[in-house]
Design a protein around this nucleic acid. Structure first.
Lengths: 198, 198, 198, 198
DNA sequence: AATGAATGAGTGTTCATTCAT
DNA sequence: CATGAATGAACACTCATTCAT
């Protein structure tokens, strides 16, 4: 779904995408109008159709693109990291950092699932599930090697992801705590929560 | 064309409320139309206005009512419970159980903050903050008595609430795990996460 | 059309009538709602139908009643007044004084003709024409006796009525000029305008 | 579903304006619906909004435009006319001729003041006052030079304007009297009404 | 490649009116 | 008799979308 061409048209497309993300986060997908979007971009509403066939294609484009990117990025970060403990630590660091950096996309991805067409929602949910499986696999491996102890790997991975994702609902750049401090707090909570006590 | 046989105002009002919650969860506040709502209730669209002056008053009514109820219920449950450990355990039990029982209202309350009028949003956020303060106070007291050890009571309470609330995004009645099992899993995760290690 | 009975119901009817006149002048017939009217009277909207079958009957009632009253009153005032000059003077005095006293009804009668049903409009126009004929007859008689000289009695009577009626568009009680002063000004204008010069 | 063949924006806008004037005169501003208007123009109701942001902007547009035009036209006609007598005669001729030609706009301007927004009403009233001042100034100058004698210049100018304006409530093209005859009748009435008798 | 003009289905909302209670 | 509950048709207005220019 990612835009690739280097033409001028592609720059307009990127601008539409970026502006759409901003406006959808501000007002919600349903409440954002194409006229608003077009005006913010500096074109006419009708011209958006040169780049995106319909309003819901624009949303699908953004959300699927985001999920693909985040999944690939996590896989890349975990590549070569050995041991469940290190892998879990890496995940926490990655997840929070990514959610802080791409707060808008993440916010959209959690809020606007409902607005997707059935087909697009399926694809997004599949990508989300793949992401969750990466986490629950880390927990399972940790339990197998006797480092972690949780009652249920799947539910625990949901719980951990839910905990970490909630950061983007209150985080504001320039707040009391910077990214590193926030990551440290959550790393400790997560690692303690799952670690097997001697 | 007039009062339908056997109709009673207060019953209609409750029916509108309950139906509205269901439809807003299904389609989102913006996407739910008053005609949809009215048809589901079995009345005319205009008749909704006898009970709720406007669509956004309906949402405000539901959300403020929900937040007041949940806050009062938590305070009642915590009354008389001594000790940070027991209080935290009680909170986890209460929060998940409530979020499972009132899944729809909770889902609404997290998703539709944006759709509220400024005034209503202020009130809901104030109630939400009061709820969060109850939790962070438990953490602070636990730290004071040397039972808990977290880097930051406030952020940790956000994290815990975020973790527990995410349950209502995947829980379905009759699924693999019942309420008690889900509560047990999360209780262990939370208590271990905050407990001071010797 | 006038209300006559002395029962309690009739008092409510009068109250509805009087309140309706006030509200219609304030907001216009179309813009006044029956709920507004009912609330101002202190009853429910549905109860208005006990007294007036429909909103447009209420308007018809008021306007026809007003026109009948004003026509009768003018005839009464002119009865026994001899000579075109005195009769014209009497008319000017009566017309302005009445329009100042019953400013609201007069205002309604000029503004809301359009809102009447065809049938009611016919009746009002017939009454208005009878009123105008009284005036043009005075002019004709004055011309016959060589006291007045106008090019056209009918158009002149329209012109005179138009001139005098415009008073109720700017008159406010307690303004710079009282009724008597206003009447004097217009009497001079009218009498000079039609009088034959030697 | 898109631009209809040969359509031009400015033509559509003029057509909307002209049709709106006609329909508002026929039914009144409140009673005219945008669907009626659109159908009469031959477009969809929503398309009116390309040209006029709201129904009351349409009315404001028409009324302010009319008042500005009539004020400018009177000033142009009076320019270079010397002497209160000639100036008053010129005014009568101009006012009636204009009110006969633009009967619809004038009728609107007198009837629909109430329907304007506060801001638009202020502007219209200011223009109307400027118009009235032109007339009362003529009367005052005539009194100063001993040609006119009225008790009150301001009230008399209201009376004269009221008299002349009432023409557009009964005038129909092709009636018994043509414009010139009607003007002659009113010129005589006005001039005699204000002239000083020797 | 983009605009400007238009559509048509839909939205929240209002309101005169009716009638069971 | 009056109210409270409901209707149903209408209204102003919005918006994604289309397509001639």
């Amino acid at each position: 779904m990612a835009r690739t061409k280097g033409s001028v048209g592609s720059e307009t497309a990127s601008l539409i995408r970026a502006t759409a993300i901003r406006l959808m986060v501000e007002h919600g997908y349903e409440a954002m109008t194409l006229r608003q979007l077009a005006e913010a971009v500096g074109i006419q509403a009708g011209s958006v159709y040169r780049y995106f066939g319909a309003k819901d294609r624009l949303l699908a484009d953004i959300m699927i693109g985001h999920m693909e990117t985040v999944l690939n990025a996590l896989q890349a970060r975990l590549a070569g990291v050995e041991g469940p403990l290190q892998r879990l630590e890496t995940f926490v660091d990655f997840h929070i950092r990514y959610h802080i950096e791409k707060q808008a996309e993440v916010f959209l991805a959690t809020m606007e699932l409902r607005s997707l067409s059935d087909e697009a929602r399926m694809r997004v949910l599949a990508l989300r599930q793949a992401y969750e499986t990466l986490v629950s696999t880390i927990l399972s491996e940790g339990m197998a090697s006797g480092i972690f102890a949780v009652r249920d790997a799947k539910v625990s991975s949901f719980a951990i992801i839910g905990m970490l994702t909630s950061v983007c609902q209150w985080y504001r750049p320039g707040g009391r705590l910077g990214p590193d401090a926030i990551i440290a707090i959550h790393r400790d909570l997560v690692l303690q929560a799952v670690r097997k006590l001697d």
